[in-house]
Design a protein around this nucleic acid. Structure first.
Lengths: 345, 345
DNA sequence: CTTGAGTAGTAAAAGGTTTTACTTCGCTTA
DNA sequence: TAAGCGAAGTAAAACCTTTTACTACTCAAG
């Protein structure tokens, strides 16, 4: 790479015959003290030379990078995950609107062990951090309790840690799914839950079970299987549930990926969805509408969530708020993967 | 946000009784001139105070940010796209290995009109840029021909512009798909092509047509429809193809998304895949294996591609190479969505 | 004719690092 | 005993902005 000569504010000052201060004042619109003649002279030179202030120098001076880190969990293809991607897209939209940039980070063991999550702040790389997919095992997050480094967790919260979060109402999600399946006439229902380390997955289970109980049904422990939030996990879980109760008529999965994995397996086993067996997911990913059959699901407003999370984080960064604890509503999207159970016999 | 007092190299110098220069030399391992006693003294203080050099100050000095921009096309949920996500994941892996960070950028009209793609470099935000999903309409890319700002295009190239790229062999992809379908006995085949503004989509069409011709078949113009690389586009295209030739026995789509859209529509129209109609995609996204039926596809090695693209970009950034023009091989992944055509009658 | 209040502008410091170009000192060697 | 050299280190400049705390000047009021 050849070097381009970088035009600095000094060049502008020299060419326009003004001082550094004057140029800076003009550029930052704090130019009440500057005559319009001088202003014009400066701006003309800026234009002519195509001057662009160095972010590095500005950042150094302001002790701000105007960059937000977005932390994703350690998965081989974390950024290819539809759930993660949806949140990132939304956060990007919000950040861009406020002139912030988004920096990618992955919570691999090294990132944690070497305290890089702290370095990111201490080395002035970023002004704030948005965390996706953290779990109660991520004890390093305790370092953020002091509020000195603005951080916000999306769609989870951690018992015993006083951290900022924005999440969906997963208890309501569980409840809505149960009520819908009950209303269709199901009561032999299996639940594929998300990873146990995720607090909101408990909320979902709890909401689901409460709604069943309220209708006089119970949810035996054997009918709840951990699907780890993945397609494979969902597929395995569906197989296991069906083995435990071959007369199962419905499955609710804690996210769409597991639901999709479950559908693939069930179809493979010769079950017809929804005639033999209903499946409900959770999230309403884009794919959900393109499944065969289109997936009935609980919509967690991921776009809204990501956008709002970023907004709140910027509030923290810029000192407009001291803490964020928010829960957003969810709703059922009825498509074709859930129907009344088959008539017995 | 409260302010943390930032520990600087000055603090280390004071506490350890050494000069700024000495501390810097020790920290940067250019300490051949420093006695081990002094070195230890400095490092102890660094440890004790938890000193971390400011990236901003380092960057200012080195005129380097150690950040790579990754530019995605303007789609509402660009980062939620599986294709984009796969490439980003791979690029991230490579960048992280070399201690570079990845910054997200989207090519919205503003980004282009206001020359932000240039600002990114001129304001020392990034050292290089990786472009995904650019088309021949992106004429602003001509600004990169001078090679002063390291940039590399993934999976496309632009006629008449002398730009760096790493791409898959889409002509071979077209050829492989055609040869496979021919070998199964198909010859009434429809092609759902990607957007015409994308040069590699022409390559794919061309490879496909050449292979058909070589076997003595032709590809009428009416059997080629633009599916815009989206699910919806693929769905519409499939409908159109079927209307134009109801006896069609196979469809090849220029990417998996279009193939998935096509399958959804075809299933909806009552066609059974692959018994009535075969479908082949291109890319081998993760989803392809979880479709119903699992999608036969041409694998473009996206992970390898993204990783390698980032490697090459870093070569450009660090001056190890002056230009990059590379093409990677593809291969067929046979699953269940393609089979011999139905027996006539 | 002096004081006070604007107005238009500037020099210098600060922000945190790296690098260049020295200095100082003790020891060999001729 | 002077010249030369290597070892260990340092002062100051450079990177590019923004901000603080001035200065110099004009004009109006008393």
């Amino acid at each position: 790479m050849q070097k381009r000569k970088h035009i600095t504010i000094r060049d502008i000052a020299r060419e326009s015959g003004a001082s550094l201060t004057t140029v800076s004042l003009v550029l930052n619109k704090r130019d009440s003290r500057i005559s319009s003649a001088t202003r014009k002279r400066v701006l003309d030179v800026v234009d002519r030379l195509g001057y662009r202030p160095s972010r590095l120098a500005q950042g150094l001076q302001a002790r701000r990078s105007h960059i937000i880190a977005i932390l994703v969990p350690e998965l081989r293809n974390a950024f290819a995950d539809a759930y993660v991607g949806e949140l990132i897209s939304a956060a990007y939209e919000c950040a861009a609107k406020s002139q912030y940039k988004l920096l990618l980070e992955m919570a691999d063991p090294d990132f944690i062990a070497r305290g890089q999550y702290r370095e990111l702040f201490d080395r002035h790389f970023v002004d704030g951090m948005l965390c996706i997919g953290v779990t109660s095992r991520d004890s390093y997050l305790a370092d953020f309790e002091d509020g000195l480094r603005p951080m916000l967790i999306i769609n989870n919260y951690i018992d015993g840690l006083d951290l900022n979060y924005v999440r969906c109402d997963y208890e309501a999600a569980g409840r809505l799914a149960a009520e819908y399946l009950l209303s269709l006439g199901h009561h032999r229902i299996g639940l594929i839950r998300g990873a146990v380390e995720v607090r909101t997955s408990h909320d979902l289970c709890h909401g689901f079970e409460m709604a069943l109980n309220a209708a006089g049904h119970s949810l035996p422990e054997s009918m709840v299987v951990d699907g780890k939030y993945t397609e494979e996990g969902g597929a395995d879980a569906a197989r296991l549930l069906l083995k435990r109760d071959p007369k199962l008529t419905a499955i609710f999965a804690g996210n769409d990926k597991m639901a999709i994995g479950a559908m693939a397996t069930l179809t493979h086993l010769g079950r017809h969805i929804p005639d033999d067996l209903s499946v409900i997911g959770c999230d309403d990913l884009r794919q959900a509408a393109y499944c065969i059959p289109p997936l009935t699901t609980i919509q967690t407003p991921l776009h809204d969530l990501g956008y709002h999370a970023c907004e709140c984080l910027l509030d923290l960064v810029e000192g407009r708020r001291r803490s964020v604890r928010e829960t957003r509503p969810v709703r059922l999207i009825a498509r074709e993967s859930a129907a009344p159970p088959p008539k017995p016999g």
